[in-house]
Design a binder for these strands. Sequence first.
DNA 1: AATGTGGTCAACCGCTTAAGG
DNA 2: TCCTTAAGCGGTTGACCACAT
Length: 288
Amino acid sequence: MEMVLQRSSDGMACHRPRSPELQEAAAELRRGPWTVDEDLTLINYIADHGEGRWNALARAAGLKRTGKSCRLRWLNYLRPDVKRGNFTAEEQLLILDLHSRWGNRWSKIAQHLPGRTDNEIKNYWRTRVQKHAKQLNCDVNSDRFKDAMKYLWMPRLVERIHATAAASVAGDGNSNDVSCLSGVTMAAAAACFDSSPSMVTTSSSDSFTSDSHELEKSLLTTCGGETMSCGDWMQQVDNEFWSTHNIQPAADKYNHQFQDQELSGWVQGFSEGVSESLWSLEDIWKMQ
DNA sequence: AATGTGGTCAACCGCTTAAGG
DNA sequence: TCCTTAAGCGGTTGACCACAT
């Protein structure tokens, strides 16, 4: 069909059909936020007839929406298993880890966060994560920001998760209960720790190696009555995680040398820009 | 109280891929 | 093999809200 490029009412470029019939049909289509009635119509129709064939579904249900719009509304909002609310520390850790493996493959990442949509993860990345990069005056895809994520942010999340778990264990008096720490999270954390010994070759980075090990040592935990390092523990659950979640372990362990001459700028960025507790003065000293 | 600014997130878009005729 | 249609994906926009000035 012949198409003509026009501007829609919201100023965005779009292709509009030329035939009068289709123009009329397109003009009838609703856009923008969904009403409660529309939501109910879509939910009820899918409950009765199932999902799929979205264009036909939209027509059959009597919705003046495109199939695309219906599909998006259902998948991102109306589906019963959609989880809402803030991301947990575990989920954040997993997002950081999976993004470091796969990049902006939001849909693929979302497959490993039950109840979370690709749209939600994408929004999280663009708002929260990119904000941190901006605060550090670096690009979100730059090596320096990846360093910050891997050696500061992710360990901090692990600490946070571990603290929550410890509080939980202390609270219910069950010293063997580590169930609140999922294999998902621990494997992501393991990925973060495992890479540290091999990553450094320069003198300035040696401190990072030892610091990572110190941090690992500091994250001692109790499992089944035996004291073990967090790294060992994470390694223990690693295999379970990879098989459970059908993710291939990263083959290319992170290997990067810090640039000495840039450290001062780094520290400046940390001390000036980062407001969340994820970045502490301790982190800055470690960087130095 | 009014206005400006920045963050969040639902919804949109164009493009690509898969499936079917 | 080519064409059409549907579905899926990632990038972008804009309305809304909270907070600052």
